[in-house]
Write a protein that binds this DNA or RNA. Structure first.
Length: 537
DNA sequence: AAGCGGTTAAGAT
DNA sequence: TTAACCGCTT
């Protein structure tokens, strides 16, 4: 996922920070990455759609982090993925089938009694369903936490918000794990943020401005940077064999012009280059720079950055690969979390995550459990456990221990029979949670557990942060004319001589040998050349 | 020197 | 599931 090796390559520009750097600011969050991490701890419960509240622990995880941010006076803005864009359809399909395989294997292992192996496979099998996202959204609503569901890629939406002034609903930084954010043009991205708020930040303007730091990005701009990312290999277009991030960077640095860089690339690697590479490149470029996003102010879909008429033309007036446009009302309903962006059905009418639960109760977030008449006692306890982030008067460490111990001893005892396991887990759980006084959540915890641990760590970090690289003197700046730079990234000027090659079959190379069948069926569609590349994966 | 496939160690929940 | 490392290839 993301841009191959980009983060490693950008290492010199990574700065350890603490999130409190953004105190008083709005910060965007790639909700999917949190949902996914949160789902690890309850992957089996989610995969099997087991009864009980354990499967809502991912919500706990997300809220924990949200409250950590709020503790530092940061306004979180959670951004959810919408529909898949067509160019990602194949990859999604692929992931889905891998997850299904993992799930089947997990169940087999479980039946065999190998719980450890089963757990591992369940963790590979979890997928984040719209239903899960919606459950988190319901909590966010009730807790007055800002969120938005992107029409398509959350990354693009985050990049758009990142480009807006805070006074216009913009955000000052993005928390994510995905290097794609940089390719989308986010100005400030925080990677690997832990539960205390420590993370690694890349600020793209600092990258462009840095003198004497290698690799040098002097004279780069966002378009060139995105172009470099695509050449290095991204989700939408694999790199030409033998080309990685370093070569891509060297090419773009040398010519500061994507047309020329690609021409040279074709000259040097033409024989290994798919015929429609240029067109695919342009489409990938459009995905990164002109993706469809939701504009809150106008309540409409817009392009991340305005799409030049000429580029539109050179793409054959064909923008389906960005996902279809949609009416304002629909886009708004999606953005507000009222419509499932994939099915376009209202969320309340959705069946539960795997579509087979009888009771609606299990489909509701833990918050609602206190009004469920059935199994009241147990559920109230667990409900509380789902909100430990908010109020606990207890020391955090104690809580964490409780949560950890809650699971394993339980299902280990029961593994021999899957059916029993599914139906009865939680029903006779040891009441470890009994020791926790049932308290109702309050939004802003004064006793926020993140505080203590953080302060010491943060101070250490600040020392690190202040030590800037000072080897600047050695850097010899390459002279390049500004005329050369101006407009050089204008993709409209692309003159690929192989536009029609979209219809041609993908060139055989190492990557497509395994999936030749798929590749052909796709090229038969001859719709979108990016798809041809996906079939190679 | 860079890419790339394979292996291994460390991390998280 | 990364990240780091090794050895082989270009």
């Amino acid at each position: 996922m993301g841009i191959k090796d980009l983060l490693r390559f950008m290492k010199p520009y990574v700065e350890p920070i603490h999130i409190k750097k953004y105190a008083g600011k709005r910060v965007g969050i790639d909700a999917y990455s949190w949902l996914h991490k949160g789902a690890y701890s309850c992957s089996m419960e989610l995969c099997l759609n087991m009864e009980g509240d354990k499967k809502y622990q991912y919500i706990n995880y997300c809220m924990h982090r949200i409250n950590m941010l709020r503790h530092h006076n940061i306004s979180p803005v959670l951004v959810f993925d919408g529909a898949n864009i067509p160019c990602k359809a194949l990859e999604e399909q692929h992931r889905h089938s891998k997850r299904k395989d993992s799930r089947d294997l997990a169940i087999t292992k479980l039946k065999e009694g190998n719980v450890n192996a089963a757990t591992e496979m369940f963790q590979r099998a979890v997928s984040i369903t719209p239903s899960m996202a919606h459950q988190l959204i319901q909590i966010l609503r009730s807790e007055n936490i800002e969120f938005i569901v992107a029409p398509y890629e959350a990354d693009a939406q985050l990049a758009y918000l990142s480009s807006l002034d805070e006074s216009k609903g913009g955000i000052s930084a993005v928390i994510s794990e995905d290097s794609d954010l940089l390719a989308y043009g986010c100005s400030s991205v925080i990677f690997k943020m832990d539960r205390y708020g420590n993370g690694e930040e890349i600020v793209i303007d600092q990258v462009f401005d840095a003198v004497g730091c290698r690799p040098s990005f002097r004279h780069f701009n966002k378009e060139l940077f995105t172009g470099m990312c695509i050449i290095a290999g991204c989700d939408f277009l694999p790199s030409v064999p033998g080309i990685g991030i370093a070569k891509a960077h060297a090419l773009v640095t040398k010519y500061l012009n994507l047309d020329r860089a690609l021409s040279v690339l074709k000259y040097e690697k033409g024989n290994q280059m798919p015929e429609d590479y240029f067109k695919s490149f342009k489409e990938a470029f459009a995905v990164f720079l002109h993706a469809r996003i939701y504009d809150v102010a106008s309540k409409r879909l817009k392009h991340l950055t305005p799409l030049p008429e000429t580029l539109l033309h050179s793409l054959g007036d064909e923008l389906d690969f960005l996902g279809p446009d949609m009416p304002s009302s629909q886009a708004t309903a999606i953005a507000k979390g009222q419509l499932d962006p994939s099915t376009m059905k209202a969320f309340d009418e959705l069946p539960s995550s795997n579509g087979q639960r009888k009771s609606t109760a299990v489909n509701k977030p833990p918050e609602s459990l206190s009004v469920q008449p059935k199994r009241k006692l147990k559920q109230q306890k667990t409900t509380e456990s789902c909100f430990t982030f908010v109020t606990s008067q207890k020391p955090k460490n104690k809580r964490i221990t409780v949560m950890e111990k809650e699971t394993k001893p339980n299902f280990i005892d029961k593994y021999p029979e899957l059916e029993k396991l599914i139906s009865s887990v939680n029903d006779d759980m040891p009441s470890i949670l009994d020791t926790i006084p049932p308290k109702r959540s309050s939004m802003v915890p004064d006793n926020n557990p993140f505080k203590r641990r953080k302060q010491t760590q943060v101070e250490d970090l600040e020392v690190i942060c202040n030590s800037q690289p000072t080897n600047a003197i050695n850097e010899v700046e390459t002279k390049s004319s500004s005329e050369q730079r101006s407009g050089v990234t204008d993709l409209d000027k692309f003159t690929p001589d192989s536009q029609k090659s979209v219809e041609s079959k993908p060139i055989k190379n190492i990557r497509n040998q395994k999936s030749g069948k798929k590749a052909e069926s796709i090229s038969a569609k001859k719709k979108n050349s990016i798809l041809n590349y996906f079939s190679w994966k």
